[in-house]
């Protein structure tokens, strides 16, 4: 094990470049998958005819496939039927689809947990279906969803590392290039990037716990 050589300034700079891509891809995917996941989860909660069962099939399919396969499929199989993506866009699309499917289930469960009595009361006091949803159900539901949502975001951040298979220049990809310099480098480099992922994700989970404590 050669920690000094592995942690040379050049290598660290190179890894930082990778980390930037990781954070960028994760941040964009988190926002997109939250938006789509909330929409899909709400539609399924409201049991919108036609749309709801179609979304159910799509969500179940995506949730039950390996993300690695989805990433590769979007990048290299979808273009065969006319959808093209750059590597970054392809990875963001794959992450968004997969995580939105997961998030929609969290949202649906969160909304379902709001007691029926509340929606009925709101409706009988003259609020419309959408108004009830927006003013009564969603705000309460979202609050309950904070912990599972954050842990899903953490999963997403970890999952960006799977983009190595389409050669996206993120943290894991750059780590593999550095590791190839010397056979004494894998343990120091793996340890370093593990700590980087850990610090980011653990901070996120601490934030979520504080948020949870405040809202309850």
């Amino acid at each position: 094990m050669d920690f000094v050589g592995a942690y040379s300034p050049d290598n660290l700079r190179f890894l930082t470049e990778g980390l930037k891509i990781t954070l960028y891809v994760a941040a964009v995917s988190i926002v997109l998958s939250f938006v789509f996941g909330t929409i899909v989860g709400t539609i399924r909660y409201m049991k919108v005819p036609i749309l709801s069962p179609i979304l159910a099939v799509i969500v179940e399919t995506l949730r039950n496939l390996p993300l690695l396969l989805i990433i590769f499929f979007i990048q290299f199989a979808l273009p065969e039927i006319g959808f093209k993506f750059t590597v970054t866009a392809g990875v963001i699309t794959a992450l968004t689809l997969f995580e939105a499917a997961m998030i929609s289930e969290i949202v649906r469960a969160g909304l379902t947990s709001i007691p029926k009595g509340q929606t009925e009361a709101a409706r009988s006091s003259g609020l419309g279906v959408l108004q009830t949803l927006i003013h009564i159900v969603l705000p309460q539901g979202l609050r309950r969803m904070v912990p599972p949502l954050v842990s899903q975001f953490i999963s997403l951040l970890k999952d960006t590392s799977l983009a190595v298979i389409v050669a996206l220049a993120e943290l894991m990809h750059n780590a593999q290039i550095v590791m190839a310099q010397n056979h004494q480098y894998p343990i120091p480099i793996l340890l370093l990037i593990a700590v980087v992922y850990f610090v980011i994700n653990y901070t996120l989970s601490l934030l979520s716990r504080r948020l949870e404590a405040r809202t309850v």
């Binding site: 590392s161 894991m172 793996l190 850990f198 994700n201």
Partner: peptide
Amino acid sequence: RNIPILIVVLFFFLG
């Protein structure tokens, strides 16, 4: 729980 599974696998394979 807070690190990617790929790191764990690569640790066993390369580390």
